[in-house]
Design a protein around this nucleic acid. Structure first.
Length: 272
DNA sequence: GCTCAGGTGGTTC
DNA sequence: GAACCACCTGAG
């Protein structure tokens, strides 16, 4: 077991912030996450979070996955003190971190996310994993499924995916899986590219436009200059920033600010 | 019935 | 370039 301080680290906030769809509260203060073929159970307490894994696995995987080596106080201190809205949003979501997730998972996840909502996205990913992923068991004997790799998804037909209620996104998933499985798209090569080049490359995939490419750049490649503009961000930009959020001011951490705003617009003042 | 949900791709001007 | 519009599905 590993203990992590909750300073600028809130699993419940990360869970609700919509960057990871395989993290769930499965009991009171108990959260479970699967990433690639890995599984982790956590107990969230007031001051700290207990990770149910060994030190080796924590150091080798989860520490980086949750971006625990980064001081988010630095990002918070860069917020314009005159920007009351961003200050409020950042305070509300100050436990959010930008996860370092797998590129392939994020490609599929954010293709599915379009014109959808968090519960439905989770449902689609669970369905895909159960059908095309591998069955595994947790140390406590609970069954979970790994995220399907490109080869497995490339074997699926559009009709199969439509049968799983993916709708028009089925065609995108098939096309993207085939490009990745055939080697026509080299996903591992993306990590060596700068943000603009990676974004452009990702947009060659069917179903990946600018917004989805930015989500992949932010949540997998950890390009903090990526600033995904979706319906929430656009709404806030129009109503609070006269049409455009000053993301140039936040070079190197714009994506962090995007998450604060997104989360505040999604969850603030409603079920917070 | 209608609108909307973390959009994309195609058509048209 | 910018402004439409079709596209699956499920919830309010």
């Amino acid at each position: 077991m590993i203990t992590v301080d909750n300073k600028h680290f809130s699993i419940p906030q990360i869970c609700r912030s919509g960057q990871c769809f395989r993290l769930d509260e499965t009991g009171k203060g108990v959260y479970e996450v699967t990433a690639l073929d890995k599984y982790l159970k956590m107990d969230v307490q007031a001051e700290r979070t207990i990770f149910h894994c060994g030190e080796e696995e924590f150091e080798a995987f989860w520490k980086s996955y949750f971006d625990l080596e980064t001081d988010y106080g630095e990002y918070l201190s860069r917020i314009d003190p005159k920007d009351e809205y961003l200050k409020k949003a950042a305070e509300f979501g100050s436990g959010i971190r930008i996860l370092r997730q797998d590129v392939w998972e994020m490609v599929i996840t954010f293709i599915l996310s379009q014109q959808s909502n968090i519960p439905r996205i989770k449902k689609m990913i669970s369905a895909l994993s159960e059908r095309y992923g591998e069955k595994r068991e947790t140390p406590e004997g609970k069954v979970y499924y790994t995220f399907p790799d490109a080869d497995s998804l490339a074997g699926a037909t559009e009709e199969e995916l439509r049968g799983m209620k993916l709708g028009y996104r089925s065609r995108y998933i098939c096309g993207t899986a085939q490009m990745a499985a055939s080697g026509q798209m080299d996903l591992s090569g993306l990590s060596r590219m700068e943000y603009p080049e990676a974004r452009e490359e990702l947009m060659k995939l069917p179903g990946v436009g600018g917004k989805v490419a930015d989500c992949i750049c932010l949540f997998a490649l950890h390009h903090l200059d990526a600033f995904p503009v979706d319906t929430h961000i656009k709404k806030v930009a129009d109503s609070r920033y006269g049409g455009g959020f000053p993301f140039e001011r936040y070079r190197g951490c714009a994506g962090v600010m995007q998450q604060y705003i997104f989360y505040y617009d999604l969850k603030g003042e409603t079920d917070g």
